[in-house]
Design a protein around this nucleic acid. Structure first.
Lengths: 170, 170
DNA sequence: TTGATTAGTGAGCAG
DNA sequence: CTGCTCACTAATCAA
């Protein structure tokens, strides 16, 4: 279908309009109105061709022609503007989803680390308990050696010292 | 400034148009075109008034009047549509930022937990080392008691068993 | 029929 | 002057 300007074609697919092709009055070439989707190469070519034809043609154009040209360009600008809008919206949604995935991943990591931490804490406390019984029980030979080992442990563990630090048995 | 319809006013602030007020031909009341911002109460009132006046007035309206009414309504719909668009965009940006904050928070938690885990691991290994020396060294009285304590430790720690399980000394 | 959405249009701003 | 964006309109979709 062509409109009153006779240079626009609408393509439809299963009842929905997909895109439009424009046969430009200025440069004569067919272009999709989606200038956002053009390659930079194509944009440059088009600009070049416009400049050339302006140089060849009569320098004076009627006011009607100028107005028509402006209108046609505006039509393209409006289309670009709309495409930009939806593109930006899609980009926002993409970024949002990406962040959501990152949140999920971090949350999973977090949960598994918390489990690991709890397990290790339990393991540590049990071992601590065991160590206490062992050092309290026999206390026969190496009392001096025992205390020295405890000192080494404390230096490895400056931060986050638990309140239940086991002291050397009396 | 009034347009050709004579019932629109544009307010500007530092050169930018902020909003418009509409004196409705149908119901006669002034309304902001921003229907999204209206309270439900206000919307209902307006709808009511329209219905009432339609009932009071002559039932036949000229085609021009009908067309005009449709045009005015369309103007409002278009405004709502634009407002909805920017509102949705702002909402997307808000959600994006919220997710970003969540990512940051989780990442911080993650990092601190990783530190804690490493510290605890070191602490555990040192204690394990100590326990080994103690159990290997004296081994005088309670050999049976020692093994039984080790069994208890293992049952506390079913999952995530480290390869360096210390066995009872021979 | 009503409300929402789209493409095209002119006004007007910004660079 | 060019490109972009806004408000508006008619056409059309959808419920």
């Amino acid at each position: 279908m062509f409109n009153e300007d006779g240079n626009f074609t609408s393509f439809t697919h299963s009842g929905r309009r997909i895109f439009r092709v424009h046969k430009c009055d200025v440069c004569g070439i067919l272009t999709s109105l989606c200038m956002q989707g053009m390659t930079t190469q194509f944009k440059a070519n088009k600009a070049l061709k416009v400049k050339k034809e302006v140089g060849e043609n009569a320098p004076t154009l009627s006011d009607d022609e100028l107005q028509r040209r402006r209108t046609l360009k505006n039509r393209g600008y409006a289309a670009s503007c709309r495409i930009k809008r939806v593109t930006q919206k899609e980009e926002l949604e993409r970024q949002k989803q990406e962040l959501q995935h990152e949140v999920d991943k971090l949350a999973r990591e977090n949960a598994s680390m918390r489990l690991e931490l709890d397990a290790l804490r339990a393991k540590y406390e049990a071992l601590q308990c065991f160590a206490r019984t062992v050092t309290r029980g026999p206390l026969s030979t190496g009392k001096v050696a025992t205390t020295s080992v405890i000192t080494i442990i404390k230096s490895t563990n400056n931060r986050n010292s638990s309140p239940t630090s086991f002291s050397a048995p009396s």
